[in-house]
Design a protein around this nucleic acid. Sequence first.
DNA 1: TCTAGCATGTAACTCGTTACATGATTAA
DNA 2: TTAATCATGTAACGAGTTACATGCTAGA
Lengths: 188, 188
Amino acid sequence: MPRSPSTPSDLGCAILGLLARGPLTGYDLARRMQKPVGYFWTATHSQIYPELARLEHAGLLEHEVIEGRGPRPTKRYAVTPAGLDTLREWVAGELEPQPVRDLETLRLWSIWLVDPDAARDLVRQARTRHYDTLAAYETELAELVDHPRAQDRTDPWFASRLTLQGGVLTRRAAVQWCDWMLAELDRA
Amino acid sequence: MPRSPSTPSDLGCAILGLLARGPLTGYDLARRMQKPVGYFWTATHSQIYPELARLEHAGLLEHEVIEGRGPRPTKRYAVTPAGLDTLREWVAGELEPQPVRDLETLRLWSIWLVDPDAARDLVRQARTRHYDTLAAYETELAELVDHPRAQDRTDPWFASRLTLQGGVLTRRAAVQWCDWMLAELDRA
DNA sequence: TCTAGCATGTAACTCGTTACATGATTAA
DNA sequence: TTAATCATGTAACGAGTTACATGCTAGA
C-alpha cells in the first residue's frame, strides 16, 4: 500500500518533529540524528537532504538561505503551518505495532551454542552498552527534570522529559536483566 | 563495506538460529518469524526463500525433499556443521550498537503539539500494546521457567527463558512508564 | 462451492547504508 | 601542512515490504 502524497514517511515525520522545535539546516538535522544522541531516531545526511526537498515540495517546509561556510548555499528550514498540521495529525493518529528486530536479543537466543566464557562476555558487552546509554539519559534528564519549561504540557521540553524518562526506565530494566542473566549463567 | 561471503546477513543468522533448534521448511520458518510471535526478529516468506537458497549455496544449510501439499516440492532445511560453526562465531563476536529507530517514542516526542485528549489517547494506546505483549511473554515464560530443560545452559530452552525474561522486564518497565506519563499529563 | 491453509517462488518498490564529490575556513 | 568542521548533494547497493503467481487438499 503506497503512502498518499500528503502523508510523509517516518523519516519525514522525524524531521518535521525536530523542525517544529525550531528551524535548522540540513547539516544540523543530520548531526542531531546521528548515532549516540539521536532522539530515538537515526538518519544520515544522504537520507535527510532528499527528504527535505520532498517535504518542501509538498509544502510542509520552507527554507531561507543564510550565510555559511559550505561550498553550496546554506539553507535553514522551518515548518510551514501545513507542516505543523500534518505533524499533529500524525502524532494523534493510529499507532500500529512495529516489526520487531532486535539483534542483541537474537544473539542471546542462540547463547546455548557457545561456551560459558563467551556467553558471559556477550552479556557483559550488552550490560556495558545499556549502562552507558542509561548514564547519558540520566544526565540529560537531570538537567530537565526541575526546569519550569519541562512542566508545561505544551512546551517541547515537556515531551523531551517524557521520552527521556522512558529511556531511563527501559535501560534500567535492561541493565537489571543483564545482571540477572550473569547470575543465571553462574548458577546453571 | 560489503560483507564477506562467509558471514551471513542478520536475517541469515536469524534463520540459522531457528534451524539450529531443529529442521524446518521455509513455510514453517516464515510462520515463526511473523508479526506477533517472532522471537525478536520478523521476516516474510519473500525474504526467507531467497536467503535459504543463499545459505545453502554457502554450505551452511542443506535440505531434503519431504512429502507436502504445495504445488512445488516441500523442502526441509537443516543446519550443516559449517553452519553451526558460523552461527557460534556470530554469537560470540563483537556486538556493535544498532541504530535506534523507535516510532512510538518519536511520536511521544511531539506530544506537546496536540491537545490533552489526543495525548492521553496516544499514551493509552501505547500502554495497551505493551501490556498485551507483556501478558503474552509472561504466559510463555510461565510454561518454561520450572522446566528442567530450561535450567541447562546448553539447551535451547535455557536461552529462550533468558530472552523471554528480558521481554518481560522491559515490557513491565514500558507499562510503568505509560502509567507514569498518564499521571504527568493529569498533573500538568 | 468457496475459503483457508499448505508451500514455494519472483518482481517492483521503498527505505537505509556506504561511498563518491566539492570546497572554504580554522585550529593543531 | 594537514586534519577537522562546515555544508550540501548524488550514486550504488543491500535489506525489507507488497504484490503477483501457482496449484493442491480439507473443511464449512
